[in-house]
Simulated scan of single mutants.
Amino acid sequence: MMRKVKAIRIALGSAIPVLVLAIWQLAVEFDLLNPMLFPGPISIFHDFYDMVRSGELFHHLGISVMRAMVGFLIGGASGLIIGIAVGLFRRTEQLLDPTIQMLRTVPLLAITPLFILWFGFGELSKILLISMGAFFPLYVNSFLGVRNVDAKLFDVARVLEFSRLHQITKVVLPAAMPNILLGMRLSLSVSWLCLVVAELMGADQGIGYLIQDARAYLRTGVVFVGIFIFAIVGKLTDSLVRVLEAKLLKWQDSYRG
């Protein structure tokens, strides 16, 4: 029964992409689209296969994934820790939150030229840009998660004489986990967005560089391969967090549609 439900869910989730690809291929076959600008899915798959066989795709993908993960770990961990601290202590909120909220409203694209001027086109500027993008979603959601914890739980923790560490690990984190996991999903998506920006602005390796190089040589199929790779890897990371949600939030009795 569970397998049948899973198969139906996968089929429903795949229906729209499969339909779009079929219509796209038919449009190319009937000359409704210019194959130089919109190569068909079959042509794109051939480019994908050639890049996989040559090892070029995995080389650039590995570098992009490493950049995104390092930036996410630095920015996400900072956002989580500071968000919990600001949520727990009002003095910390009064000290840090106004500045962080002000920085949060500054578009990342406006900061990118400064990062390049300060740190050059090397790895440091890219990782810092990704870290900054990953920081804010986890910070905001961690802060809101702590503030949404029922005050009665803190009263119980005081009665049981929990230390501050036990209050955080036994009360705050479990109760704030839905918000934290939401922040993690948003941070991962922003990390991929910032990675694209960083690699398109200046890189000699990575999927973003691959797209930029293919655009310069009118290899439109390779551009689409890069876009699809970003979409697929982004979806996989989002699905990984959803698996964590299913395991860590089993206790929730929430509406599922």
Score class of each variant (00 low, 15 high):
212 Q>L: 12
34 N>D: 15
228 F>T: 11
257 G>D: 12
68 A>V: 14
254 S>N: 09
179 N>R: 05
67 R>Y: 12
38 F>A: 14
160 L>T: 07
1 M>S: 13
223 V>S: 04
34 N>G: 05
129 L>K: 01
216 A>G: 08
157 A>P: 05
58 F>W: 14
166 H>Y: 10
75 G>E: 03
122 G>N: 13
210 L>F: 01
249 L>H: 05
189 S>D: 06
197 V>R: 01
206 G>I: 00
57 L>A: 00
70 V>L: 14
130 I>Q: 00
82 I>Q: 03
71 G>A: 08
133 G>E: 05
106 V>M: 08
214 A>H: 04
63 I>D: 01
6 K>A: 15
181 L>I: 10
107 P>G: 07
93 E>Y: 06
179 N>T: 05
27 A>W: 08
219 R>K: 14
98 P>Q: 11
224 F>M: 09
240 L>S: 14
91 R>I: 11
36 M>V: 12
195 L>Q: 01
148 N>K: 13
205 Q>C: 04
116 I>K: 01
170 K>Y: 08
83 G>L: 10
216 A>V: 03
242 R>W: 07
16 I>G: 09
153 L>I: 00
30 F>D: 11
5 V>G: 01
139 Y>N: 06
235 K>R: 14
90 R>M: 13
59 H>S: 13
77 A>E: 10
143 F>Q: 03
200 L>D: 00
242 R>K: 14
245 E>F: 00
31 D>T: 08
61 L>T: 10
10 I>M: 12
20 V>T: 12
244 L>H: 03
49 Y>W: 14
111 I>R: 04
206 G>N: 02
160 L>D: 07
35 P>Y: 11
125 S>D: 10
209 Y>T: 00
124 L>N: 12
47 D>G: 06
185 R>W: 07
100 I>N: 01
155 D>Q: 13
88 L>A: 05
58 F>S: 09
17 P>W: 11
255 Y>W: 08
162 F>V: 05
123 E>I: 12
53 R>C: 08
191 S>C: 13
61 L>P: 06
116 I>Q: 01
209 Y>D: 01
257 G>N: 08
238 D>C: 10
21 L>K: 03
16 I>V: 15
144 L>S: 14
218 L>W: 12
150 D>G: 07
231 A>G: 15
